[in-house]
Simulated assay, not measured.
Amino acid sequence: MSQIKEKCGQILWMVCGVLLAGALSTGCEKSDPPESNVVEYSRFIWINKSEHSITLSVMLPEGGEFLVQNETMAPGERIETEYAPWVSDYIKLVEVTYDDGTYTSFGDDSPFVSPPGFLSYDPSDLYKYTRAENWKTETVRYVDWTYTFDESDYHCALARSLGL
């Protein structure tokens, strides 16, 4: 009888170990597609906290589709747009023009290279965005991608446009 209890205990521990290993190995990364029963939308939010008006164009890699094209944000304003379905981990191109004519672009098609000290300002890199998940219903989820432009972004754009 004690051998049967011992065998049952061993089997129980093995089953628990397999279940735990499976649970730990199924984590979601940012680029994972949503579960099959969940509809997931990406909502992009760009906020202008700089002292300049910004004209913004943002292109996705899928077919060269623009999320926004030549949209203008005054200081303190924001632009929001929704995109379905799940978005990939990068944006193909972001073009930014400030009210004084300073222009810069980021992404695959960008001719600019960021000068030293300005490498962290890149609105084409989704890792520079704040990401938040919001459930609208049990099967509809929004992933908010938020980028906030500030004076540092402007100074980066100015340095890039001057070739510094």
Rank of each mutant, 00 (worst) to 15 (best):
T104F: 06
Y147I: 07
S114N: 06
S2T: 07
F149Y: 09
D153I: 02
E29F: 07
F149C: 01
S50G: 03
T146P: 01
A74R: 08
I11D: 13
L158C: 03
V18G: 00
S25M: 14
T97D: 03
F118K: 14
G163D: 06
P111C: 07
E95D: 13
E35S: 13
F118W: 15
K128F: 07
F106H: 04
V58S: 00
L119H: 08
S36R: 11
P123D: 01
V96H: 04
Y98D: 02
V94F: 00
N48I: 05
E62K: 13
K5R: 12
P34L: 11
D99W: 09
H52C: 03
C16S: 10
V18D: 00
L162N: 14
E95L: 09
L164W: 15
Y121M: 08
E80Y: 03
W13M: 05
D99V: 06
E82Y: 13
A159D: 10
L162A: 13
W86P: 03
A159I: 07
Q69D: 12
E82V: 09
V68G: 01
G64L: 06
S57E: 03
D109Q: 05
Y83R: 10
S114D: 05
P33E: 13
V58W: 00
A159Y: 08
T97L: 05
Y83V: 05
R141H: 08
S2L: 07
P115G: 10
I91S: 04
K7Y: 12
I4Y: 13
T148F: 01
T81I: 08
C16L: 14
T55C: 08
P116D: 15
P85M: 12
Y147T: 07
D150G: 08
E65Q: 06
S25G: 08
S36A: 09
L60M: 10
V18T: 00
I47W: 11
K30E: 15
C8P: 02
V39D: 11
Y90P: 02
R131C: 04
F44D: 00
S161H: 06
F66P: 01
D32T: 10
K136W: 15
S152T: 09
G9H: 02
E77S: 04
M73G: 03
M59P: 00
S120M: 11
V68H: 01
G22A: 09
A23V: 05
F66M: 11
G63Y: 07
S53C: 01
A21I: 04
V15W: 01
K7Q: 15
F106Q: 01
I11T: 12
I11Q: 10
D125M: 09
S42R: 03
E35R: 15
C28K: 15
Q10E: 11
A74K: 13
S88K: 14
